[in-house]
Design a protein around this nucleic acid. Sequence first.
DNA 1: TGACTGTGGGTTTTT
DNA 2: CCCACAGTCA
Length: 750
Amino acid sequence: MQNYLQELNDVQRQAVTTTEGPVLVVAGPGSGKTRVLTFRIAYLIEQGVLPWQILSLTFTNKSAREMKERIAKVVGDKANQVWAGTFHSTFAKILRVEAEKIGYPSNFTIYDTTDTKSLIKTIIKDLNLNPEKYNVNAVYSRISSAKSNLITPKLYPDMQELMTADKASQRPHIHEIYKTYTARCKKAGAMDFDDLLFQLYYLFHSNPDNVLEKYRKKFQYILVDEFQDTNYLQYAILKKLALYEGSKLNVCAVGDDAQSIYAFRGATVENILDLEKDFKGLQTFKLEQNYRSTDHIVQAANATILFNKKQIRKKIWSDKGVGHKIKVIKALSDTEEGKRVADAIVEQKNRHHLSNSDIAILYRTNAQSRVFEEYLRRYNIHYQVFGGTSFYQRKEVKDLIAYLRLTVNQKDEEALKRVINYPKRGIGKTTLEKLSKFANESDQTLWDCLDQLQVPARTQGLLKNFKLLINTFTQRSTTSDAYELATYIARQSGIIKVLKADTTVEGLSRLENVTSLLDGIKEFVENDEVIEGTEQSDKSLSTYLQNIALHTSLDEEDTGNYVTLMSSHSAKGLEFKSVFVVGLEETLFPSFMSMNSMSAIEEERRLFYVSITRAEELLTLTFASSRYRHGKTVYSEPSRFLSEIPLDHVESNFNIGQPTTSNVAPRARVTGGFKKKRTEAVLSINPADFNPSPSSSIEEGMRVLHLKFGEGEVIKIDGARDKRVATINFNQIDNPERRLMLKFAKLQIL
DNA sequence: TGACTGTGGGTTTTT
DNA sequence: CCCACAGTCA
């Protein structure tokens, strides 16, 4: 009994056994936070808390599943009845039950990013706005962030700040798009990703039939993992559930501000600070001992994160020994980088007896995976790529899914548009346009208009046939299970026939994908998992569709012995004996998108911190001086993050190696330390004699001094205020003409 | 209506 | 580089 408590250190144990009242666990990388969460839940159950009174919100469904498995080892089957999942999936589950209270059907569709963007695009067109000004991505991100900050379409026009910003970006009509978008989603019985949170908040806020009390009573204990990555809306929901008159405030948040990497989608570290203000009596536990990595890695991480101004100071330490120093590899091109990494993997496997699954390659963008895949394949090393275009985003898979969606929810506009003429049945663009127009004007769904449209008799027949086809599917759904139905649909819709007709290699693989989608549905039907808190299982097609809509690349089953390839973001929470962080170049990692904002750079640095702390024993950092990007070769400097690592933790005589291609420029001589290579021209200016002038005083024509580049003349200044960029000719260095952001550049007027 | 071709544009991370 | 879209012709 309770043996497991002895496996914990003092702080961890306190974090587990302090079950009553609000708790914040600040957990550095590798500090055993999953352990604390798991044991805490197990402990709660042992103390007599009913499993379904525990709500545990994790980052991926997979980690929720793994957690349940580990809890089961302590308390047995009860573990399955804990409510554990991601914010989105858990809330979707609640909404399935309660949707009708807020005017949505319980079989509502979940619009993915593609659906959302497609709808926004349609609306921009419908409202006669200029699609060049109204960039879909920009509009989407405005709408998404409005929702994440609880700004309804009604409220939006009153938000001076938002309206001014929209005007400034020449998109003053965003609020109208937002309004129409919301209405269209509702009409289609669809929620986008943000709605799963937003509508749940709205449900709790408007509180029909006292539904809020029901869930407050139900969830007596709430745990939130990766709290630093929650947004304003998620925190607002948490407060709805746990912060009220008479609440026991049994909330446990686990997080690490240094690992916050989702600010770009609205996550805010402020939630950690607010927690203290909102939940009186909050007890904080800091887990600082790292059980994962050896000391060089831990110290490198500590040193790097110090470059961030915004942070809760905390020092991670490890007693796993100093371990190996960090290895840095310079490559001349992305291809060479691929080869060098593959070579290093072969070497490590031999020298350190690693198996494939001990190794991970982490990159900033998914597009970088290709070169590594090529070399690993060539070397016959098994690998698995996570993320990127997922299986469920493939065209043929989405097509079949669209039929399934339409069968479940006939109002689903995006699904209907996708399949109305696939496979080809003679309903073309013109007809679809007429249909949309008619639907908009008569305020009906596309589906309802199918048999009302005034078109030539032939077309009318086609439309009716299509409606009839889907209706047969829907009728069948009451009698057959999801698998039978999907198989039937795949055949009757003609999808299988079309795919079989294509005998090319790609065609074959498309057919295979559809088959494995069907297999997946079969598996879903045969799986005997039960719904949390009940003895029943839910095999409905609509539950299946929900699962795949919220499926993340990390939920993928990792069976077998593979080298892991994934983005740094996806690697959060994982660990490997050996980690390669690749593509460490300015404009790639840190991404060029982050380059003009300090806070964005700090987020990139946290991402770098997350990346390197995934490594237990071996850490290799690589960069390439040239890289093929968007069809062009681009050259870039090594990432600033490399130079932020103290040299004592880096292999001093790292081998630069020989270029792998024959006709590349001869490499500069190896000078050992890393720092020297980074600074292109080392000028002997004593920093003590250097007095930078305020950036606002820099004007064209002045002679200025720069610590690294020496003396130069300001040729030109463009941009205004804090966006001023100076073109300066530094005649003491090789590549004399430089463009510097005056906001950041330290220059002394001479 | 549908197949085909050329142009042009964007260019991160994810639920 | 790759994808989406507009324009052309049968």
